[in-house]
Write a protein that binds this DNA or RNA. Structure first.
Lengths: 136, 136
DNA sequence: GCTTGACATTCGAGCGGCTCTAACGTTTAG
DNA sequence: CTAAACGTTAGAGCCGCTCGAATGTCAAGC
């Protein structure tokens, strides 16, 4: 699998993936004769984990460390510090989900105001130029 | 109310608040004789809105624009572009909340492995039958 | 063959949004 | 009166991408 396909599958960009590689978060993948990167399913798996950890706002370096140990089956060697980090981040995540629920209510209110006082009868066209196919 | 108290109330930092002010997102607040910033409830309200919009990942500049119009009661003058932005961001938010739920399962699994002292089970074998949209 | 277009490569610069430091002034509790 | 806790400024630094330029590779169509 090449970088573009991988990026799309994981909802990121080729640039970002190369950036992870440069930073040493991702092992250098195999290359085909044309020097294109060729990603294995294992590579994809690691990147998937990394992205998950990043979504918890775990810094790149520590995400890499965590991913590496666990992939090597050496979870028992993960430092207490890192364990703690994961735990606090998970707690934070839960809090954030709650916050977002609240936020959405406020934004719904705001959006309501916009619609009410807004464009007379011509309702806002939601997908105007933006055409994001979530395929869900 | 001074900057520290405001920051704490809104879960941010004095630095960030001053940064917003420098960038023109926040009007320069009143100053007391000692040149300390004194925030009114209106100031706090605006900042609260701004922070909400930022949590939707709406760029600073556009968040400011939106906040300004709405505060001035000129919601009807908000551009369609901005309306659309708010809407797409709200949709994105909903998606993200779902993603986070899924993410949390994966991270719970990972955390479980860590706690188990490294029982080498395969990473992230969580099925992604995580597709019901629970009410927010 | 040639051309066009989508995809890949490298390197490096640029950017958004904070975050922190330094050097300093003010307020308040003991 | 002193020490801490808070405030002020200007500016540098940082993280995590993001983008651009110059170039290479490959498939499809004329």
């Amino acid at each position: 699998m090449r970088i573009g396909a991988l990026a799309e599958q994981l909802g990121t960009t080729p640039h970002a993936i190369r950036f992870y590689e440069r930073r040493g978060l991702l092992p250098a993948p195999a290359r085909s004769d044309n020097r294109y990167r060729e990603y294995s399913e294992a590579d994809a798996e690691r990147l998937r984990l990394l992205i998950g950890l990043r979504q918890l706002d775990i810094p790149l370096e520590q995400a890499a460390e965590l991913a590496t140990m666990c992939a090597a089956g050496r979870c028992d060697e993960v430092s207490d510090e890192l364990r703690g980090l994961l735990t606090t981040k998970r707690v934070e995540l839960a809090r954030r989900v709650d916050e977002m629920r609240f936020l959405d209510r406020r934004m719904a209110h705001l959006a309501g105001q916009l619609e009410a006082g807004g464009t007379p009868r011509t309702l806002i066209n939601l997908r105007k130029e933006e055409e994001h196919a979530p395929a869900m």
